[in-house]
């Protein structure tokens, strides 16, 4: 199907769904009896009254928008699960009443974020207390947070608010184009790696950290979304999954035996340049050839040599070796990820 046809079909599908569901008339389809998760209008009003205790001060003048939470899922008051300000921040009576009349009010019961100290207006709320507030609703939800407890981030006291901005109209960490900058606030080595000449398309906004990682905890290594490195890679590179007639053992073992996914000086995301990468494992008589500036390239930075006490300029290489230059070993063993060709035992088919 042509792209334009597909786009047209998609638009028709969208349009049909939206129209038939009456969205544009603000009428959404009722797919069954009203859920127990919806509440009455009076309950909505009651919840907003509780919010008003806070929003009468924390209004549109806040540097960081507070009221825009009403544009988010947390702000849909007719959903019985939707929190009020107090649901997350606590009743915060001392803060609200400021009984002593101090210029700086006492802290709310729960403040979210990682900062603390004398430069902050309020002391930092303990991570466990912050996260407990979120987990009131999200602890047992079957989904991406199943393995949060005891995970790498949880056990290092990372709080939900370190990454999530629940008041923001668009939580940055939930948008593909802006998610990496959130992660890179801590993962600075990976930030630098994504600037190398060979990278995944994070800069272009076509891929985000959560395409491979689930920061809430997983059963896989490095918080990968699948059980293993390879299973994670196959979500995009399914053609390499096989099984194949002739498999390459390190490939089936772990893609990161050869690749470094965040960025590399050697395309495509390789840990070292062939043939040297291959020579880490292959030492047979065909593979163990010496390659260096003395014999491999036409413009090697060769220096003079001494033979029999006489100094000569190094001869360099008249003819580059097939398995040493360019794609090196892969010039012939192109199907290094495995071959399904009956003649492909050595991955040259």
């Amino acid at each position: 199907m042509k792209l334009t046809t597909k786009i047209a079909a998609l638009c028709l599908m969208f349009g049909g769904l939206l129209t038939s569901s009456g969205i544009f008339a603000a009428e959404l389809p009722d797919l069954g009896e009203s859920s127990v998760r919806t509440v009455t209008q009076s309950a909505v009003t009651d919840s907003l009254k509780k919010d008003a205790v806070c929003t009468k001060c924390h209004d549109e003048s806040e540097v960081k928008p507070v009221l825009s939470i009403y544009q988010t899922k947390h702000g849909v008051k007719a959903d019985s699960r939707t929190p009020s300000c107090q649901s997350c921040h606590g009743d915060s009576d001392a803060h609200v009443k400021n009984a002593d009349g101090k210029a700086t009010r006492p802290s709310p019961d729960v403040l979210f974020g990682m900062k603390s100290g004398s430069n902050s207006s309020f002391p930092r709320t303990a991570s466990s207390k912050q996260n407990a507030s979120c987990q009131t609703c999200h602890a047992n939800a079957a989904g991406k947070r199943n393995h949060w407890t005891g995970s790498q981030h949880e056990s290092r006291n990372i709080v939900c608010a370190a990454c999530h901005e629940v008041h923001a109209r668009q939580d940055k960490v939930l948008a593909k184009t802006t998610q990496p900058e959130v992660c890179f606030n801590c993962h600075k080595t990976q930030r630098a790696e994504t600037h190398r000449i060979s990278t995944h398309p994070l800069d272009a906004g076509k891929m985000s950290c959560s395409d491979c990682h689930n920061p809430h905890g997983t059963t896989g290594p490095k918080l990968l979304i699948k059980d293993s490195v390879n299973a994670t890679c196959y979500t995009c590179h399914a053609e390499k999954r096989g099984p194949l007639l002739f498999e390459h053992q390190p490939v089936t073992d772990d893609c990161t035996n050869c690749h470094t996914p965040h960025g590399s000086n050697t395309t495509p995301l390789l840990k070292a340049r062939p043939p040297f990468l291959c020579q880490e494992c292959h030492s047979n008589q065909h593979a163990n050839a010496k390659f260096s500036g003395s014999n491999m390239t036409l413009s090697g930075n060769a220096t003079n040599i001494i033979v029999n006490g006489v100094t000569y300029q190094a001869p360099g290489s008249a003819t580059p070796t097939t398995n040493g230059v360019g794609r090196a070993c892969l010039n012939c063993h192109a199907l290094v990820h495995g071959s399904n060709h009956p003649s492909g035992a050595k991955f040259n088919r």
Binding site: E60, E62, V63, K64, P65, S68, Q71, A168, R169, Q170, A175, T177, T178, P180, E181, F184, N185, R191, T194, H195, L202, D203, A204, G205
Partner: peptide, 24 residues
């Protein structure tokens, strides 16, 4: 870190829409 994240046009095209609404 935005500096690292997008080619120029894309950063213009995508990010502003996402966050222009946050101009508080």
């Amino acid at each position: 870190s935005i500096i690292a994240l997008r080619a120029a046009l894309l950063s213009m095209a995508v990010v502003s829409v996402a966050y222009a609404g946050e101009a508080a």
